[in-house]
C-alpha cells in the first residue's frame, strides 16, 4: 500500500472541494472494494476524503418515486419496505451480491462505482490499460472467461461487476451529482461508459464529482433481477439480467432489459425492448427478444458460453417477470434472484 492522506468530510461541498484541489485524491465511503485495491497497489490515491459522515443516509419519497441517499448502506436500501415492494429488482440485485458484512458497509453511491473484477486489473505485474494506460490488455490473449461480449475494445474487455447497477439501468434511475461545476443529473444508463481507447475511465463523472443520491422514478410495473454465479452465495455474476415491465392490460406497454456481466457497463438492449413493446407476453416472443438482444455479441476465446447462458437467462427473467413462470423465491429477496438457489432440499 502507498502512503496517503485521510480527511473526513462534513458537507458535500467541502468533500468536493477537498478532492478537486488535490491531484490523485479520491472519495471513500464503505471502501469495501477500494481498500482491497489499495492494498494490492492497484489504486494509489494521494488523499482519501471520507464521505461516510455526510448527511446522505436517508431514503425519501421523491417525485412519485424514491430518493436513495448516496450514503445509504446496501443493506438498508435492500430491506427498505418501499424498495422491496415497488422496485424488487433493486432489492434482489443488492441481496444477491457480496456478503452481509460487505452490504452493511457498502454505500449506494459507492456500489455502482466499484471497479472491474478483471483479474488482470487486480495484479500490478500484469499489463492492463485500465490500470496503466498504454501497457496493453492481458485478458485479450489470457483467461477471458468472465469478460465482455458486448461493447469491448482492443484496449479493454473488462466487465462491470455491480449487480445493483444492472437493476438501476433497467429502471432508468437518475443519478444526482455534485461537483466542482455545480450539480447535475445523469440518467443511470449514461453513468458508465464503454472502454474505447480510454478504459481507465469507468464513468462519465469528472474528477471531483460526488454522487449524492440515486433516484428511482415512479414505476408501477414489475421488476426482477436474475443472476448466474459459480457458487450459491458471494460470487460475482457470470451473467445477470434485470427486467422492468409495464403492462397495458394484457400487453406490454414498455419493457426495459439490462444485462450484467457482459459489458463494460450495464448493457441495455433497446432493439429487444422495442420488439417487446405493444405485444402480449409469450415464450415465443421472449425467445425472439433474446435473439435480437444477443445478435451483435462478440465472444472472446473463453466466454462464448455467455451467449447461450445470457439468452437462456434473459428468457427466464422475462418469463418470471411477466408471470408466465413463477419466481424462484419471494420477490425482493436473494432467493428470487439466485439461479439454482441454495444447496439443500
Amino acid at each position: 500500500m502507498y502512503p496517503f492522506q485521510y480527511q473526513r468530510a462534513t458537507t458535500p461541498e467541502q468533500a468536493v472541494a477537498a478532492v478537486a484541489k488535490v491531484s490523485g485524491a479520491a472519495f471513500v465511503a464503505g471502501g469495501t472494494s477500494q481498500l482491497d485495491l489499495m492494498k494490492e497497489d492497484v489504486l494509489r490515491p494521494s488523499l482519501l476524503v471520507d464521505v461516510s459522515p455526510l448527511p446522505l443516509k436517508t431514503i425519501s419519497a421523491f417525485e412519485g418515486g424514491l430518493r436513495l441517499g448516496a450514503g445509504v448502506s446496501n443493506t438498508a436500501a435492500a430491506i427498505h419496505p418501499e424498495v422491496q415492494a415497488r422496485y424488487p429488482a433493486v432489492s434482489e440485485a443488492l441481496l444477491a451480491g457480496a456478503s452481509t458484512q460487505i452490504r452493511n458497509m457498502a454505500s449506494m453511491g459507492g456500489n455502482p462505482l466499484q471497479r472491474t473484477r478483471c483479474p488482470y486489473f487486480r495484479d500490478p505485474a500484469q499489463p492492463c490499460n485500465k490500470r496503466e494506460p498504454g501497457t496493453g490488455c492481458a485478458a485479450l490473449k489470457g483467461l477471458n472467461r468472465v469478460h465482455a461480449i458486448f461493447g469491448a475494445s482492443t484496449a479493454c474487455v473488462a466487465t462491470h461487476p455491480s449487480d445493483l447497477a444492472v437493476a438501476l439501468a433497467a429502471l432508468d434511475a437518475q443519478v444526482q451529482v455534485t461537483g466542482p461545476g455545480g450539480t447535475r443529473t445523469i440518467a443511470f444508463p449514461d453513468l458508465h461508459r464503454l472502454p474505447g481507447d480510454t478504459p481507465q475511465q469507468d464513468t462519465t463523472l469528472v474528477p471531483g464529482e460526488l454522487i449524492t443520491s440515486i433516484d428511482l422514478p415512479s414505476f408501477t410495473g414489475r421488476s426482477h433481477y436474475l443472476k448466474v454465479r459459480e457458487r450459491a452465495s458471494y460470487a460475482f455474476a457470470l451473467v445477470s439480467c434485470a427486467v422492468a415491465l409495464e403492462m397495458d392490460g394484457k400487453k406490454i406497454r414498455r419493457a426495459r432489459v439490462a444485462l450484467g456481466g457482459v459489458a463494460h457497463k450495464p448493457w441495455r438492449v433497446p432493439a429487444a425492448e422495442a420488439l417487446l413493446a405493444g405485444k402480449k407476453p409469450s415464450e415465443k416472443l421472449f425467445r425472439a427478444a433474446t435473439e435480437v438482444a444477443f445478435a451483435d455479441a462478440k465472444p472472446l476465446e473463453h466466454n462464448a458460453y455467455k451467449l447461450t447462458m445470457g439468452r437462456n437467462l434473459m428468457l427466464r427473467a422475462l418469463l418470471e417477470t411477466s408471470g408466465l413462470q413463477p419466481l424462484q423465491g419471494p420477490a425482493g429477496t436473494a432467493f428470487a434472484a439466485s439461479v439454482g438457489g441454495v444447496g439443500g432440499e
Partner: peptide, 11 residues
Amino acid sequence: DELTGTIRLAQ
C-alpha cells in the same frame, strides 16, 4: 439447472 449450467448439491 441445465440452461444456466448451475449445479447445486441437494443432499
